[in-house]
Amino acid sequence: MPETSSSPEITPEVVRHLSELAKIQLGEDEITLLTADLGQIVSNIAKVSEVATPDIPATSHPIPLQNVFRPDVVGDNVLTAEQALSGAPEQFEGRFVVSAILGEEQ
């Protein structure tokens, strides 16, 4: 996973960048408010690194399990196209419709 670096101050620029990553358009006052909130929260929670020494393994799952698989068989929860599209804000000829995409295909 990405490398460590010390936690910087939460600045409006940081919050603005995070809002772009999180795809949430934020107004200037929201950014100001979030910058203050986040700064306070981060200063309270940054202490996790005090005890997280390299010898401690990380826990991702509270109850360890492994090799949980399903057989390669079509299941009982396949949706009809009508069901699949039932919540679509906009659809056309069996497909979901979105606004123009600016940029490149991933």
Binding site: P2, T4, V48, P57, T59
Partner: peptide, 20 residues
């Protein structure tokens, strides 16, 4: 923020260790 490049180990990674 906790997952973003450069902070993962200090935040999310450390939190998972605290979990241990």
């Amino acid at each position: 923020y906790a997952l973003s490049a450069g902070y993962y180990d200090a935040y999310y990674g450390s939190a998972q260790k605290v979990r241990t």
